[in-house]
Write a protein that binds this DNA or RNA. Sequence first.
DNA 1: CACAAGTATATGTGAAGACATATACAATGA
DNA 2: TCATTGTATATGTCTTCACATATACTTGTG
Lengths: 203, 203
Amino acid sequence: MSLAHAILGFLREQAMTGYELKTLCFDHDAQHFWTADQAQIYRTLEGLEKRGHVTSRVKRQRSRPDRKVYSITPAGVEELDRWAATPAPLPPLRDPFLIQLRFADRLSDEDLLHIVRERRSAMQQRLDILRARAAEEAKGAGRDAILHRLTLGAAMSDARSTIDWLDGTLETLSDLIEQEHPTEPGTQSRLFARRTDERGSTS
Amino acid sequence: MSLAHAILGFLREQAMTGYELKTLCFDHDAQHFWTADQAQIYRTLEGLEKRGHVTSRVKRQRSRPDRKVYSITPAGVEELDRWAATPAPLPPLRDPFLIQLRFADRLSDEDLLHIVRERRSAMQQRLDILRARAAEEAKGAGRDAILHRLTLGAAMSDARSTIDWLDGTLETLSDLIEQEHPTEPGTQSRLFARRTDERGSTS
DNA sequence: CACAAGTATATGTGAAGACATATACAATGA
DNA sequence: TCATTGTATATGTCTTCACATATACTTGTG
């Protein structure tokens, strides 16, 4: 269970509540490699406590709901290290967009180009966000900081290469469409308008 | 539900049984963009039949279990086209390996390099398989064939860029380790042995 | 001859994830 | 003052996916 180990990882850095794990860790730090639901986090914490990988103590608060602060146990640390050193199988290839593309032969030219362009723009947006985060966290030469930066780099490299592939795909498809029903010069439709920028935020 | 639409796509090309969908389609054609369990396929077919997107008729066989051949209905075709033209949200970034890397700061140098190298080799293997498939199916200039090749290209481009990132990561980590505890010339450990090939099958 | 592999469908079960909703109170802002 | 936002935990339910197992007959292999 990956989520459990991600939680152990964050708790090893600092004891925290479920709420903090969600808002500080999963919504920011881990955003580019693991996203998690609030409900899932709480239920996973329960499970970890049952297994003795974490412990909790409740802190009373007058003005707010009580905080249940979770700490990692030695058994939890051991489990995390064991898991982190065990090569995991590759995640299965599974992308709904590629299903769409695979079976897009009956789509109109407009719809076909549209879904690819939308995909590109969504990817560009993701890349922009990643770049912003990378710029923020550019400091630190310790092992931690370097590992953290490497994971960000993985996400960025992935987004970047996907965008490149989408651009190639767009060209292939444009050529195909043009070839299927050639237009006279001057009659060229807006469909084939070239992108104006290659890398910048397309927003 | 992506699986349902993938099934509709294959059935639009040809009426088939659940068994054929599994062995001919999902284990081969769709291997690089959607994998599916046999049980899932059968249950999804049931659901599609209830919704009127497919119909089935049973063919008696003396020597073998009966075949239940599924065909797509007009409603199914409509649903598929509608779905294929609707831009889907990006799949969430979620990779257990990046969790491992993010929290690998307490791993030994050996373990750290080991999981990255293992990952590289698994990716290389995936890429080799994809290349073999691309070589087999290099024919065809129709829309179908081109779209199919594009999806293969997506998977290959992804694997390739991941390998590049892993190579960069390996260098970063080697440098880091060397810097943390420098070795005298001649004492250099096997840890830092360079890869012998960049792109070929590392097997 | 025994055993494995291929053809074919189906069910049981459990984990993981997605989404909604309940509770409770404080501070902030329109 | 009324509504929203933030802090904080918890439960319910549904879908998707993964893994195991049952059934049944045939063909090929050692």
